[in-house]
């Protein structure tokens, strides 16, 4: 069952067409990475899902219920973390969560339990300062806590890691991986390593359209580049190896670096052994032999160029 579904959504601001015929869906319990360069329309899309912006055309469904601009009932299924979450600076974290809980219609006992639990998960337990003194990372973590308060079926995070340092990023990603069992997560980012760390499916947004969508593992297979990286101990052997490998007929391209070669092949299975035989025959000391996995970075660059 798809938790979130967009059908032919269009949105423009003045003359600028931000979203052009955007369609995609996210299935239950997925961690969906919504990838795209800055300005691709990720935030706009999320705001339309929340009913904060009105699509010019198209329809959006959350849990099979249509999203209505303005006052959408579908928001009760959603936990939302905006790109820059803004809180009431004069409140303490637990006061803010209490407010959110009451608005969501949770019982007082439930609010108490969830507040304690979530403040612990995001590492803000025992923080009794007012929010105005919070760092960016602390606000982001409080943002996650409020988004998870009502046990959302769909958690939408807008660039949750972009403004954070490596430690803060790890903390946020850890929290997201903890909650993946219970909820479907959609998070936008332009940091691809974050996607590789926790997402199982992705959608790439480029120029207002999803140009690629699917399971991360399947996409990697489809776009697999058949190449190996050979790194040698002795620099002088690089040219010898290049010459010998060049004679093999399944090789399509060889890139030479200082003490390594990147060999692109037409057929991985047949040639792997042939290359290794050459290495043994010429008594070359290998430092590293790696069958290259396609990185998201490469996929992304390929699509965007």
């Amino acid at each position: 069952m798809s938790i979130l579904r967009l059908e032919h959504v269009y949105k423009s601001f003045g003359k600028l067409d931000v979203i052009k015929d955007l369609s995609f869906s996210v299935s239950e319990h997925a961690v969906f990475g919504f990838i795209g360069p800055n300005g691709a329309g990720k935030t706009t899309t999320m705001k339309m899902i929340l009913g904060f912006l009105k699509p010019d055309a198209g329809e959006i469904y959350v849990c099979n219920e249509k999203v209505i601009y303005g006052n959408t009932k579908t928001n009760r299924y959603i936990g939302y973390l905006p790109d820059v979450p803004e809180f009431y600076g004069y409140m303490r974290p637990w006061e803010y969560l209490q407010l959110c809980g009451e608005i969501s219609g949770l019982s007082s006992a439930k609010i108490k339990d969830k507040t304690d639990e979530l403040l612990h998960i995001v590492g803000l337990d025992g923080v009794n300062r007012k929010i105005r003194g919070f760092s960016r990372g602390m606000k982001q973590r409080l943002g996650i806590a409020q988004a998870l308060l009502n046990d959302p079926i769909l958690l939408i995070c807008d660039e949750p890691t972009s403004a954070l340092d490596p430690i803060g990023r790890k903390e946020v990603l850890d929290v997201l991986s903890v909650v993946r069992d219970k909820t479907t997560v959609v998070f936008s980012t332009h940091i691809l390593s974050d996607v590789e760390r926790i997402c199982d499916s992705i959608g790439v947004l480029y120029q207002g359209k999803v140009v690629m969508q699917g399971k991360l593992s399947e996409l990697k297979n489809t776009y697999r580049q058949e190449s190996v990286l050979i790194e040698v101990e002795d620099k002088s052997q690089v040219s010898l190896l290049e010459k010998e490998i060049g004679k093999l007929n399944a090789v399509s391209q060889i890139d030479v670096f200082e003490n390594s070669l990147k060999v692109t092949l037409n057929q991985m299975d047949l040639i792997n052994n042939a290359v290794l035989e050459l290495v043994i025959k010429h008594n070359i000391n290998l430092k590293k032999y790696e069958v290259l996995e396609p990185t998201l970075e490469n996929l992304f660059m390929e699509l965007v160029q």
Binding site: L50, F52, T72, K73, N75, R76, I78, G79, Y80, P82, P85, E86, F87, L99, C100, I103, S104, G143, Q146, N150
Partner: peptide
């Protein structure tokens, strides 16, 4: 934004 996303 957050308050309204809670369905208020």
């Amino acid at each position: 934004v957050i308050i309204l996303s809670k369905g208020l």
